Simulated scan of single mutants.
Amino acid sequence: MSVDVGRNQLRVSFSVQRDAALSMPDGSPAALLTFYGAECGMKAAILDRLGLRSTAQLPEHLRNHDLHRLAKELRLPPSLCKRMQPCASQNAHEQVAFAELHQAWRYGRSLRRDHEKEALAVLRELLDWCRQELRT
């Protein structure tokens, strides 16, 4: 079951999570807040563009953590979308999809440092885009 929230709640959550992530030292907690901040900002932008009030009104395919799909819905530059790549795990031959990075950081899965660094760079670009789009 998902929790539905309004456009203004998403805007506030975006700002709070972005500011908290930027004030923290690098690591999983900051990465997690960066991911969730980008998700909230992108969903707020989609609600704005579609004239919707709540996430309850979003189509089912946008009611998840798939930032790539949200980015495509917002028509973000293909060059940015292409950079939303899976990250390799540090000690295994497994990969973590970009949409599931929040789980890796939440549960403590170690990621290859270079992959994680690139994912965080993309997430920070998404935060910057959201800040400009939402004028916050």
Score class of each variant (00 low, 15 high):
residue 1 M to D: 10
residue 2 S to T: 10
residue 2 S to G: 00
residue 2 S to Y: 08
residue 3 V to E: 11
residue 3 V to C: 03
residue 4 D to I: 03
residue 5 V to Y: 11
residue 5 V to T: 13
residue 6 G to L: 08
residue 6 G to I: 07
residue 6 G to D: 11
residue 8 N to T: 12
residue 8 N to R: 14
residue 9 Q to I: 07
residue 11 R to M: 13
residue 11 R to I: 11
residue 14 F to K: 02
residue 15 S to Q: 14
residue 17 Q to A: 11
residue 23 S to F: 00
residue 24 M to E: 04
residue 31 A to H: 15
residue 32 L to T: 04
residue 34 T to W: 02
residue 35 F to R: 04
residue 36 Y to P: 04
residue 36 Y to Q: 09
residue 37 G to C: 08
residue 38 A to E: 03
residue 40 C to G: 03
residue 41 G to Y: 04
residue 41 G to S: 06
residue 41 G to R: 01
residue 41 G to K: 02
residue 41 G to L: 07
residue 42 M to V: 07
residue 44 A to E: 05
residue 44 A to P: 03
residue 44 A to D: 04
residue 45 A to P: 00
residue 47 L to R: 03
residue 49 R to P: 00
residue 49 R to A: 10
residue 49 R to W: 03
residue 50 L to Y: 06
residue 52 L to T: 02
residue 52 L to A: 05
residue 53 R to K: 13
residue 54 S to W: 07
residue 57 Q to D: 15
residue 57 Q to I: 01
residue 58 L to W: 07
residue 59 P to Q: 14
residue 59 P to M: 11
residue 60 E to Y: 09
residue 61 H to E: 14
residue 64 N to K: 06
residue 65 H to R: 06
residue 67 L to H: 07
residue 68 H to F: 01
residue 69 R to D: 10
residue 73 E to D: 07
residue 73 E to L: 03
residue 74 L to V: 02
residue 74 L to P: 04
residue 74 L to C: 04
residue 75 R to S: 11
residue 76 L to S: 05
residue 76 L to H: 07
residue 76 L to V: 00
residue 77 P to N: 05
residue 77 P to D: 14
residue 79 S to E: 15
residue 79 S to F: 01
residue 80 L to V: 10
residue 81 C to M: 12
residue 82 K to P: 00
residue 83 R to H: 01
residue 84 M to Y: 04
residue 84 M to I: 01
residue 85 Q to T: 12
residue 86 P to M: 05
residue 87 C to G: 08
residue 88 A to Q: 14
residue 88 A to V: 06
residue 88 A to Y: 06
residue 88 A to M: 12
residue 89 S to V: 13
residue 89 S to Q: 15
residue 90 Q to L: 15
residue 91 N to S: 12
residue 94 E to M: 09
residue 94 E to R: 10
residue 95 Q to G: 01
residue 96 V to D: 02
residue 97 A to F: 05
residue 98 F to T: 03
residue 98 F to Y: 05
residue 99 A to K: 13
residue 99 A to Y: 03
residue 100 E to G: 05
residue 102 H to R: 06
residue 102 H to G: 02
residue 103 Q to R: 11
residue 103 Q to K: 09
residue 105 W to M: 09
residue 108 G to N: 02
residue 108 G to E: 08
residue 110 S to L: 15
residue 111 L to G: 05
residue 112 R to F: 05
residue 115 H to I: 00
residue 116 E to K: 12
residue 117 K to D: 12
residue 117 K to R: 15
residue 118 E to T: 10
residue 119 A to T: 02
residue 121 A to C: 06
residue 121 A to N: 10
residue 123 L to P: 05
residue 125 E to P: 00
residue 128 D to H: 04
residue 131 R to Y: 06
residue 132 Q to Y: 01
residue 132 Q to T: 09
residue 133 E to D: 13
residue 133 E to T: 12
residue 135 R to E: 14
